[in-house]
Simulated assay, not measured.
Amino acid sequence: MLKPENPLRGDYSQMRADYTVDQDWAAYTPEEHALYRRLVERQSRKLPGYACDEFIEHVNELLSDGIPLFEVANAILGRATGWQIVGVPGLIPDDVFFTHLANRRFPVTVWLRKPEEFDYIVEPDVFHDFFGHVPLLMNPVFADYLQEYGRGGMKAAALGGLGYLARLYWYTVEFGLIDTPQGLRTYGAGILSSGGEILHCVDSPAPHRVRFDLMRVMQTEYRIDRFQDTYFVIDSYDQLFRETAQDFAPLYARLRGLPIIDPSVTVGGDTLIPLARHHDLNRRSAA
């Protein structure tokens, strides 16, 4: 394997059997710390009115001057919910990922994007993983949901359910919206770490915002190369936990007989959230 241009990026040569690596915090350059601070500053300005309260409540507890030191964050996480983050060199196999989640370990990529990738990056980096995902691990119900998801994932391969489970992760953990008394907010890490989609998912009239339905979510394909055409909206993290803490085997059996739904369309049975209602709630909240 060729040595990557950035020795922290995608270097799997030092990983352990569980795909974890040490975070060589001393190897980050001043320029990388400065870039991370710029990313945090850009995104933090966009959180009010768009990010869920639970994210905003905890994100500042985990901020540091530059790229965070995982062991410091782990002390905070451990006290809050018993979760830990583990360094990984990049994308890891599904079974390894699920095993980490099932044991309350969240894999965080150790390398940072380049300056020219400031607005968009194909693979998750330390900013996406840490800033986008870790704050909600401080919320006990969401933390339990993610563990249940990992436990379900450990069984999914044998049941032919990996594709369906990937859609559930995509439309909740990465790109989920939640309906609050103040209006729509996002809790999805892919949105919370995106400079553009955090505004698009709440304000734009283009996407469909559909009330969460587990079967509908697992039937729906998703986009990886542009903003989402459809977002699914939960009522609470308790709802997520309840939906996940069940036997998925009969659901997978039913899903195999159902068509895959294009994300750009709505179907019969969808409950859509009108954008006007959300904007009205937002105005009242601001007042």
Rank of each mutant, 00 (worst) to 15 (best):
D95M: 06
F97E: 03
F97H: 04
F98W: 15
F98P: 06
H100G: 09
L101S: 02
L101Y: 03
L101E: 06
R104K: 15
R104C: 08
R105T: 11
F106Y: 05
F106W: 05
T109F: 05
T109A: 11
V110R: 01
W111S: 14
W111P: 04
R113I: 10
R113P: 09
K114M: 12
P115H: 09
P115G: 04
P115L: 07
P115I: 09
E117I: 03
F118T: 00
D119K: 05
I121Q: 13
I121K: 02
V122Q: 12
E123V: 03
P124Y: 04
D125P: 04
V126G: 02
V126R: 00
F127P: 04
H128W: 09
H128P: 01
D129F: 07
D129K: 05
F130V: 11
F130C: 07
F130Y: 15
F130K: 02
F130L: 05
F131E: 01
F131V: 02
F131S: 00
G132W: 14
V134K: 03
V134L: 04
P135F: 14
P135L: 09
P135T: 10
L136W: 10
M138W: 09
M138R: 15
M138I: 10
M138V: 08
P140A: 07
P140H: 09
P140T: 06
V141S: 01
Y145F: 14
Y145R: 01
L146R: 09
L146V: 13
Q147K: 15
Q147R: 15
Y149D: 05
Y149N: 03
Y149M: 10
G150Y: 07
G153H: 10
G153I: 12
M154C: 14
A158C: 02
G160W: 07
G160A: 10
G161T: 07
G161W: 07
L165K: 03
L165E: 10
A166C: 11
A166F: 04
L168H: 12
Y169K: 03
Y169V: 10
Y169N: 08
W170Y: 13
Y171C: 13
T172D: 08
T172K: 10
V173T: 12
E174T: 04
F175P: 10
L177N: 12
L177K: 12
D179V: 01
D179Y: 10
D179F: 08
P181W: 01
P181S: 01
P181K: 03
G183H: 02
G183N: 06
G183R: 05
R185M: 11
R185I: 06
T186N: 01
T186W: 12
